[in-house]
Computed example of a mutant assay.
Amino acid sequence: MLIVDKDTFVPEVLEAEGFVFVDFFGDGCEPCKALLPHVEKLAEEYGDKLKFTKLNTTKARRLAISQKILGLPVMAIYKGGEKVEELVKEDATTDRIEEMVKRYALAE
């Protein structure tokens, strides 16, 4: 998984080709930490079909707000510079994240 920050988010996510998965997390977010092993497993499994990135919103608050990230965890899919789908807070379950990843990984 590629770690992005305020300097690399635009080229790595918004200007990237194809679908990009972004795991928005924060330093004190326990649900984020609990989901990380599952997300990393999906990245290993589908990383050849979907670009996987993660952004620490604690270190990029303005960027998070500009992307309308108001609570954590948030798992989002981007394409062509636009957010096409996201799972927020209690909707970000392991099953729903996997469904979302499969939908876009198998779409290409």
Score class of each variant (00 low, 15 high):
Ala43Arg: 08
Thr94Arg: 12
Asp7Arg: 11
Glu108Ile: 10
Glu12Ser: 13
Lys83Leu: 10
Thr58Trp: 07
Thr8Ser: 15
Phe25Ile: 06
Lys89Glu: 11
Glu86Lys: 12
Glu15Arg: 09
Thr53Lys: 12
Arg62Met: 12
Glu30Thr: 14
Arg61Asn: 06
Cys29Tyr: 02
Glu44Met: 04
Lys41His: 09
Glu44His: 00
Glu40His: 06
Leu36Tyr: 12
Thr94Ile: 08
Val101Ile: 14
Lys59Ser: 13
Thr93Lys: 03
Leu50Glu: 11
Leu72Ala: 02
Ile69Pro: 04
Ser66Cys: 03
Cys32Ile: 04
Lys33Arg: 14
Glu99Cys: 03
Lys79Val: 09
Gly80Asp: 13
Pro73Tyr: 07
Tyr46Trp: 08
Glu108Leu: 12
Glu30Gln: 15
Val10Lys: 13
Ala34Val: 12
Ala34Asn: 08
Glu86His: 10
Lys41Ser: 13
Met75Gln: 15
His38Glu: 11
Asp5Met: 01
Phe52Asp: 00
Met100Arg: 07
Tyr78His: 11
Gly26Gln: 08
Ile69Tyr: 06
Pro37Ile: 01
Gly18Ser: 04
Lys83Arg: 14
Cys32Lys: 00
Glu86Arg: 12
Glu45Ile: 02
Ala64His: 12
His38Cys: 09
Glu99Tyr: 02
Lys89Ser: 03
Ala92Met: 06
Ala105Asn: 10
Val39His: 00
Ile65Ser: 15
Arg96Glu: 10
Pro11Phe: 00
Glu90Ser: 04
Val20Asn: 00
Lys49Cys: 00
Leu106Ser: 13
Glu45Asn: 04
Asn56Arg: 03
Thr94Phe: 02
Asp7Ile: 05
Val84Thr: 05
Thr58Phe: 07
Met1Leu: 09
Thr57Ala: 14
Arg103Glu: 09
Leu36Cys: 01
Ile65Asp: 15
Lys54Ser: 08
Tyr78Pro: 02
Glu17Tyr: 03
Val22His: 05
Lys83Ile: 10
Val10His: 07
Pro73Val: 01
Lys54Trp: 05
Ala64Val: 12
Phe25Thr: 07
Lys89Ile: 05
Glu90Thr: 07
Leu72Ile: 04
Val4Met: 04
Ala16Glu: 03
Ile69Cys: 06
Gln67Ile: 10
Lys54Leu: 04
Val4Arg: 02
Asp7Trp: 07
Met1Glu: 05
Gly81Val: 11
Pro11Leu: 00
Glu45Asp: 08
Asp7Gln: 13
Thr8Met: 14
Lys59Met: 10
Val20Phe: 03
Gly71Arg: 05
Leu50Asp: 11
Tyr46Cys: 02
Glu44Ser: 01
Leu2Phe: 10
Val101Ser: 09
Gly18Thr: 01
Val84Gln: 07
Lys83Thr: 10
Cys29His: 04
Thr58Glu: 03
Asp23Ser: 02
Gly71Trp: 03
Met75Thr: 11
Leu72Asp: 04
Pro11Glu: 01
Pro31Ile: 00
Ala34Thr: 10
Ala107Met: 14
Ala60Thr: 09
Leu55Asp: 00
Gly18Gln: 03
Phe52Thr: 06
Ala43Phe: 00
Leu50Trp: 08
Ile69Phe: 06
Phe9Arg: 07
Glu85Pro: 08
Lys102Asn: 04
Arg62Cys: 00
Leu14Ala: 12
Lys51Glu: 01
Ser66Trp: 08
Lys83Trp: 06
